[in-house]
Amino acid sequence: MVTPSELFRYAIHKFRHLLRGNGGTEELEINRMSLPRKLLLEAAMIMVAVVYVVPFYWMVLKATRISILANFPPDLNPFSRTSFNNFINNFHQVWSFGNFPTWYFNSILVSSVVVTTSVMVGAMAGYAFARLKFRGRNILFYVVLGTLMIPFPVILIASYVFMVDIGWINSYQGLILPQIASAVNVFLMRQYFLTIPSEIEDAAKIDGLRPWQIFYRISAPLAKPAFAASAIYTFIGSWNNFLWPLLEAQTVNYWTLPLALNFFKGANGTQIYWNQMMMADILALIPTFIIYMIFERYFIQGISLTGTKG
């Protein structure tokens, strides 16, 4: 009897090109490249990266300043002792502003429920579409993919009216439920399940496992990278979602962080408190940045799975 972990190791071995990228065009470049050309390309990469980092660097810099006005010449060091004290001070001001802890809690609650349910629902359906035979499988799969063609605005207004009619405006279920069904997750999961060799499942079938046992014990553990990729995308999407909470959460108690950030923008009348705005920005970005740093590989993979290998 083969243990799941052995199967997992086998799958990793067999499909490592999916996990690491299969080389492609990048490999032969490096052998033939002259040193000056290599240095030139590296300099270009660093310049592009700097352009992309500068706005975020400035966000951190602003959050470590007490004065709301720009100094001239600007002090560019966000790591000095005063900067740190200012940072803590700004943090206290933002954290005690309005219902900031509640907004943070709401964001965490909504996103984590959306991620768990959406990935589970997507994996179940994705597995059924990839592996199980049933009547109407193709048609139903096209129906799911067809939802990608419906632009969000068309659903938005009617969902809002529907929520008003059933009294779900300002409620957690109203914030969460419309965000769960995701054709992208179903598609990503199905694509990944299709890459798992069916011999493994056939062997399990001969050993007498029921279809849902095969899904639960054999195939789902093998699809960890796909679970990771869709969980991360769903989390980022839900954490950053602005338009739906804007309509749905009309009282302060149900706000999520993007609404709070937008509120900060105009909170102090005519005077703009850049330091507090940027501090609030940082607090909202921290969870996504941490997840991104840990799982960067899966981001790339998720896009390649859904994007081009259709």
Partner: peptide
């Protein structure tokens, strides 16, 4: 197998029905 499949896709279609097809 097909009964399992319908059970596995049921939650997805309930959600799509209520929050995508119906609103559209």
């Amino acid at each position: 197998e097909s009964r399992t499949a319908y059970l596995l896709i049921a939650p997805l279609f309930i959600l799509l029905g209520s929050f995508v097809f119906f609103p559209a």
